[in-house]
């Protein structure tokens, strides 16, 4: 872990991985979209509307996954004062907020024809909305200080505290018997979803993960370069004074 505390080394690793992740995204996304939109059957009950699921479910998984990435990064940053971990949490936050927004929006689009309503105050929906606000709070707090490192650390504590919400999101469908359907893929026994629909979903989840990794690397690189610029400017200003 401490190997990657060196920003220059991290930048080199990011540069080396970049073409591979970009290639994987470029390959997986068209394949996943083809499978989801054309290469999979319509549902016998939901009809074509089921295809929203191939965007909604991967976005929801990533919304939880990215928050966990942020919480782990923040913990590393707080415990070991790991400089890159702090920037990695900061780089992930707007992406997580974006995926959460996609999850909420596609859920509303699906809910309108299927449940007859855009929104219900169901346990799953409410806890995802709270997750969205936690992302917004993290972003607002991280940018609220003149010293960006101080903002990053304060927001890191918030990310760790707010992580209690992630298990609530995950298990809300089991703990409260409300409108949102329970988990059908990540179950101890076999997934309760037909392979014809499971495979497009898995490919789409991989595509979303690759896209997140790609954008995360781009943002991490930008954060690292910006932090370096600030150090250079500060030392230049000191030299002039």
């Amino acid at each position: 872990m401490h190997r990657y505390a060196n920003p220059a080394r991290t930048l080199r690793i990011v540069a080396a991985l970049f073409p591979w992740i970009a290639g994987a995204t470029a390959l997986l996304f068209p394949l996943g979209l083809y499978l989801a939109l054309a290469g999979s059957p319509a549902d016998y009950q939901q009809g074509e509307t089921v295809r929203i699921m191939y965007v909604h479910v991967p976005a929801a998984w990533l919304a939880m996954f990215i928050y966990s990435v942020m919480a782990v990064s923040s913990a590393l940053a707080l415990v070991w004062r790991h400089p890159v971990a702090e920037l990695s949490a900061r780089a992930a936050a707007p992406l997580g907020a974006g995926f959460t927004a996609v999850c909420l929006a596609t859920g509303a689009l699906w809910g309108q024809p299927m449940w007859g309503t855009w929104w219900v105050w169901d346990a799953r929906l409410t806890s995802v909305l709270v997750l969205f606000f936690l992302y917004l709070g993290y972003i607002a707090l991280a940018d609220a200080f003149d010293d960006p490192e101080r903002g990053g650390r304060a927001a890191g504590i918030l990310a760790i505290v707010g992580w209690v919400n992630v298990p609530i999101v995950k298990f809300s469908v089991d703990w409260w018997n409300t409108l949102h359907q329970p988990a059908s893929v990540t179950r101890l026994d076999a997934p309760a979803i037909h392979p014809d629909m499971l495979w497009p979903l898995i490919v789409m989840a991989a595509a979303f993960t690759a896209l997140f990794t790609l954008l995360w690397m781009i943002r991490l690189r930008a954060e690292l370069i910006e932090r370096r610029n600030r150090v250079v400017e500060a030392s230049l200003a000191e030299g002039l004074a």
Binding site: F133, A154, A155
Partner: peptide, 27 residues
């Protein structure tokens, strides 16, 4: 107390506290 401690010295700290705290007190 968490929200007040985290926003100590922040710009617009008073406006930030509700955004940070209210999602946590939903339960």
């Amino acid at each position: 107390a968490i929200g007040a401690a985290l926003t100590l010295g922040a710009r617009r700290g008073a406006a930030l506290v509700p955004l940070l705290i209210l999602p946590l007190v939903v339960p």
